[in-house]
């Protein structure tokens, strides 16, 4: 018999997480939730183009969810936490797996996005903290008024430094999605000659839509397309 025993119960859950496949499945499942969120978040924010009433009403609607909002936040925070923790452990594993680097190494198939997941991830994470302090709690916002989301967005983005950081972070987010959105299917075991090319196309489309949508808001504020009425 094999030297590896298959245990039951809690041991098995630990063994699942310990294996490289189990960790990747967790990356994929949490990534699935998070990329669903970024698309929804972007789509909701597009209401900024419909004026202050529309956007502020949308914000009220979300706040009106009460306990539901906190439940959603809890799930997202859990997913983000697991995604980051697993990514960190995988990154350490990667360094362990090849202690001596190549003198010369060529890359012939890996995309830029795939190579930079470990860099785009932490930068997006840092951006996320700034973003929450900026528009949710108002800690890093120059003139935060709770409830007046439209005004907060316009005033916040009139600072070119903040806008540039948003744009850079969202380009990185798009690059992260470019690899992540098809990669999560592969990690969960979905690969078929008929569907995988379509999933790769979906990932490209997803990255462009989320990236362009998010970057358009600071650009629209800086160019005066949005928020001309705000003093």
């Amino acid at each position: 018999m094999s030297s590896i025993a298959i245990n039951g119960g809690a041991n098995r859950t630990a063994a699942f997480y310990e294996s490289v496949v189990g960790k990747k499945a967790i990356m994929a499942a949490t990534g699935f939730v998070l990329c669903g969120f970024v698309l929804g978040h972007m789509a909701g924010n597009m209401q900024v183009y419909q004026g202050p009433e529309k956007l502020n009403h949308y914000a009220e609607l979300l706040q009106g969810l009460g306990g539901g909002l906190w439940a959603i936040r809890g799930v997202l925070l859990l997913c983000a936490g697991l995604h980051v923790m697993t990514a960190f452990q995988l990154w350490r594993l990667k360094n362990d797996a090849r202690p001596q680097p190549y003198v010369k190494k060529a890359t012939i198939a890996t995309t830029y996005a795939a190579r930079t997941m470990i860099w785009s991830g932490p930068i997006i994470g840092a951006f996320l903290i700034y973003h929450i302090l900026h528009f949710t709690t108002g800690g890093t916002h120059p003139d935060f008024k709770a409830g007046d989301v439209y005004r907060n967005v316009v005033v916040g983005f009139r600072n070119p430094g903040a806008s540039v950081f948003y744009i850079i972070a969202n380009i990185l987010l798009a690059i992260h999605l470019y690899h992540g959105v098809w990669s999560m299917f592969q990690s969960l075991g979905v690969n078929h000659p008929q569907y995988t090319p379509k999933l790769k196309l979906l990932a490209k489309g997803y990255a462009w839509v989320v990236g362009l949508g998010n970057c358009s808001i600071p650009l629209a504020v800086l160019t005066g397309v949005v928020g001309a009425s705000v003093k």
Partner: peptide, 12 residues
């Protein structure tokens, strides 16, 4: 256990 890394679906 043998110390191989994990797959990032790079396709290399």
């Amino acid at each position: 256990e043998e110390g191989f890394g994990y797959c990032t679906n790079a396709g290399e």
